[in-house]
């Protein structure tokens, strides 16, 4: 006989409980911050600014919005945008190249599959690396940039290193998970044939995770571009610096040019990485 369908109300499932918890937390946070919905409506000057700012979105600037008082030999506005973008990209690429090395090394050491078939005492080392990774990830790149500014002064290397440290941590964490989740049949087969642990890992395991690793790295490059853009708010010459200056001078059309430029770069990287992922999966 088929089991009868439950008629009595069931206990809330895990998902219902977690949803309830989440919404309760949001309500507590709302009152904890002392927020009111009225503050969401911009007042007088704020409202004027909203109007001006968003009406500027349909006509981004292609030349300086206010050329009075500018030196006559100043380079054209679009050059400035290009220079800002270029610096943003160079910081991002430099930071990513460091993070890839750091993330790969730490990711190997933090993964369980690398230490398989080895002495169990290595587990301690693996956990030390994992804690190190968590610590690296926990401090935001802007806070690190502040520390470097305070200790070393302003230099492009400070921005690059500030981005590279947390990014190495994130890459290492994700790489180690990808390595551990990669299919293990080939590795097991190699191991039964008598291959050494390192051979098993490098030939049987690592290549299986490589597509995921590459796809994720590209996604992180996109994030690095955003981080490097924001570094401009601290005086580095990335696009954030110019955006802030234009906004403070109330040149909203210039602000939109910078925003659109950033969006286009991010978009290109996203389309590119989407295509890469499709090739890998196919």
């Amino acid at each position: 006989m088929a089991k009868p369908l439950p008629l009595a109300p069931r206990l809330p499932t895990r998902r219902v409980r977690i949803l309830t918890g989440i919404f309760l937390a949001a309500v507590i946070a709302f009152f904890g911050l002392g927020l009111s919905l009225g503050e969401l409506i911009p007042r007088d000057s704020g409202f004027q600014l909203v109007l001006e700012f968003f009406s500027a979105s349909v006509q981004p600037a292609f030349t300086y919005q206010n050329s009075e008082g500018l030196p006559s030999d100043i380079s054209p506005f679009l050059f400035k945008v290009g220079r800002g973008l270029w610096t943003t990209l160079t910081y991002a690429v430099a930071a990513m190249s460091l993070s890839l090395i750091g993330g790969m090394v730490l990711g190997l050491f933090a993964s369980a599959s690398f230490w398989e078939r080895r002495h169990p005492a290595w587990a301690t080392f693996r956990w030390t690396v994992r804690v190190l990774i968590a610590a690296m990830r926990s401090v935001h790149e802007l806070l690190l940039a502040l520390v470097f500014l305070a200790t070393l002064g302003i230099t492009p290397g400070a921005a690059v290193l500030a981005i590279a440290i947390p990014y190495s941590g994130t890459l290492a964490k994700v790489f180690s998970e990808m390595l551990d989740e990669s299919p293990r049949e080939a590795a097991d087969a190699l191991s039964y044939l008598g291959a050494k642990p390192l051979q098993v890992f490098l030939i049987g395991r690592f290549p299986r995770a490589l597509p995921d690793i590459a796809a994720y790295s590209f996604y992180r490059l996109e994030c690095a571009v955003r981080s490097s853009a924001v570094m401009g708010f601290f005086g580095f010459t990335t696009i954030g610096l110019y955006l802030r200056q234009s906004f403070e001078n109330l040149h909203y059309r210039e602000v939109w040019t910078y925003l659109y430029a950033l969006i286009v770069v991010v978009l290109i990287l996203e389309v590119w990485s989407a295509h890469l992922r499709r090739r890998f999966v196919a």
Partner: peptide, 24 residues
Amino acid sequence: ILLRAVPEYIWAYLLLAMLGTSAW
């Protein structure tokens, strides 16, 4: 795409000028 292409920090910077100082 447009929402996520702009970093949080820049969103916050722009919104702060419009909404004034609160946590919003």
